[in-house]
């Protein structure tokens, strides 16, 4: 079964990236009820800024750190300049605002940097590791470890820290959170910064494998969104599982059915999940207030 194992390994690698994007979605969705279609651009920015900082002579870890901080700042700016002024707008408007933001960021990136594909060296070399007849790149292990570490940190943050609980409270009921003295504006800023930083980290981790360019963000956003929905919107565990499932599913489709239709498989499954259980795998049922 080395073939199956190979597909599984590459699926989990890609899935870990989707999971990171989906986690970013989840944080912002929980804090603000906004689905941020610009989430993929954070991944792109992480990769692009790291590459150009590295190319300018900075050591890779420092370049990556700068990229993550800069992307977090862009995330905060996105919230302050575009999301906050539009609070209470209908879903359609919010979708258009975040898609507009993603197009804007893409346009700005191609102006400031360029339109080429870029790659920087993998963290631990490019020598594939043999596992039971299949191979995996050391960088893939970094990606998978990164996704798991982020998930664990988020879990600690939301369950063990006061500020994490404040974010959950804000997500639950904004006004009630304000009434008990939570600075909800700060919570929003923090959520966007965290979400953008996680996206950028995903970009830093995956660029040595998949390369990056100004236009890679949209596809990632769609996949991450699909993963978040598969797992159940707003649920971090769902984001992780949804992302990994989606990655494996794509790899299996590409391996056994048709590589051209690997993206199709993802959307077919998402449509099926939405029809069969609209709340996703881990979501809760919600009812509408009349």
């Amino acid at each position: 079964m080395p073939e199956l194992l190979q597909f599984l390994l590459s699926g989990i690698t890609v899935g870990a990236v989707y999971a990171l994007v989906a986690l970013g979605f989840t944080i912002i969705y929980n804090a603000s009820d906004v689905v941020n279609f610009a989430q993929g651009e954070f991944v792109m920015l992480g990769g692009m800024i790291t590459f150009f900082a590295h190319a300018a002579g900075l050591p890779l870890p420092l370049a990556a750190l700068i990229a993550i901080i800069a992307t977090a700042a862009i995330g905060v700016a996105l919230n302050k300049l575009a999301i906050e002024p539009a609070r209470g707008a209908p879903v359609v408007s919010l979708i258009i605002i975040t898609i507009g933001a993603s197009i804007f960021i893409r346009g700005a990136t191609q102006l400031i940097f360029d339109k080429q594909l870029h790659r920087f060296p993998a963290f631990s070399g490019d020598q594939p590791i043999l596992i039971g007849g299949a191979t995996i790149l050391p960088q893939s292990l970094w990606v998978i470890a990164g996704a798991l570490a982020i998930f664990f940190c988020l879990w600690l943050f939301f369950t063990r820290t006061l500020i994490g609980r404040a974010v959950l409270a804000t997500a639950n009921n904004r006004i009630a959170a304000q009434l008990v003295g939570i600075n909800t504006n700060y919570v929003m800023t923090l959520s966007f910064a965290m979400s953008a930083a996680i996206g950028a980290l995903a970009g830093v981790l995956v660029t040595p494998i998949t390369l990056t360019g100004y236009d890679v963000g949209l596809a990632l956003a769609l996949k991450g969104f699909a993963a978040a929905m598969l797992g159940g919107m707003g649920n971090p565990k769902g984001a992780l599982v949804g992302g990994l499932l989606l990655g494996v599913l794509e790899a299996m489709t590409a391996g056994y059915i048709s590589s051209q239709y690997k993206d199709a498989a993802a959307f077919v499954v998402i449509l099926a999940v939405l029809f069969a259980m609209p709340q996703g795998l881990f979501g809760r049922k919600s009812t509408d207030r009349v």
Partner: peptide
Amino acid sequence: QEYEQLMLGLVMMLVMIFMR
């Protein structure tokens, strides 16, 4: 042409924010 995407994104955001 270089600025096309930048402008499109900006228009989308501004109109939706200021003219809901």
